[in-house]
Simulated assay, not measured.
Amino acid sequence: MADALEPEQLETYFALMEAVSLLQHAVEQQLRAEGDLSYVQFQLLARLAGAPERRLTMTELADGVVYSRSGLTHQAGLLEKAGLVTRGPSPEDQRSTLVTITEDGVARVDKVLPGHVRVARGLLFDPLSDRDLHALGDIMARVRDHMRAQPPRSAASRRRAT
């Protein structure tokens, strides 16, 4: 059957999905326990903390985080309410919303980062040799780049209900 995955492909797919789920669950638990953050909120804060002038437009954040625009707006609102970011119009383009991490936001990232690194290292990197790490990095970068080259969901044609 042309639409079926080969046994090795299927085994690899399920191993990848299980590993991602286990890692994401452990990371979510650590972020909630140590910083009262979801993984998406952590991603947003970490990207902002590493950005020039510690600010990005919502579009720039959306380009780096795989999350719906409405969900991203909601998460940014929660972070703003918690005092971890501010939002406002961009001075360069009034149509763009600029998100800036606050000092409290930077402090929250600094608080959770050591635990985040500990979880990632313990679950993902410790069982790998240097050679494994290099190979996995190359493979995942290639897969990621291939996926990012596909048209975004928003560009997909929509079928009308008949």
Rank of each mutant, 00 (worst) to 15 (best):
D126C: 10
G83I: 00
S157Q: 15
Q94F: 04
L133G: 08
L84A: 01
K111G: 01
A156E: 11
L79S: 06
R118D: 15
A107T: 10
Q94E: 12
Q75W: 00
S154H: 10
L136P: 05
E18A: 11
E18L: 11
A33F: 08
R95P: 02
G122R: 13
T12H: 04
A149Y: 04
D3Q: 10
Y67S: 13
K111M: 07
P52W: 10
P7G: 08
E6Y: 08
G83E: 00
E11G: 07
T86C: 04
Q43L: 13
A82S: 12
V85R: 00
V119D: 02
A120T: 13
V40R: 11
R87P: 03
S157L: 15
V66T: 14
V66C: 06
L10M: 11
V20S: 15
Q9I: 06
E8C: 08
L79I: 06
L48M: 08
L31Y: 04
D104W: 01
S38G: 13
T86W: 02
G88I: 03
Q30A: 15
T102C: 08
G137A: 05
A82K: 10
V66F: 13
G64A: 14
S68V: 03
G137S: 06
G122T: 12
R153C: 07
A155I: 00
D130F: 09
R160Q: 12
Q75P: 00
V66A: 14
L48F: 05
A107D: 12
L31E: 07
L45F: 01
A49F: 06
D93N: 07
G137I: 01
R160Y: 04
P7H: 11
D63N: 14
V143W: 10
P127F: 02
M17F: 09
D126K: 14
D126Q: 14
E28C: 09
R159T: 13
G77F: 05
E11D: 13
Q9P: 02
S90Y: 03
L37Y: 09
E53S: 07
P91Y: 01
Q94D: 12
L37I: 06
A149Q: 08
L23Y: 11
T59C: 01
L37R: 05
E92D: 15
L136S: 09
S154M: 07
D126S: 14
M147R: 13
S68A: 10
L133N: 06
L37A: 08
R95S: 14
S90I: 02
E92Y: 09
V85L: 04
V143K: 09
L136F: 15
S90W: 02
E80N: 13
Y13A: 12
L56G: 00
G35M: 04
D36A: 12
R121G: 08
R142D: 13
V65S: 05
V66Y: 11
T102K: 05
P114Y: 01
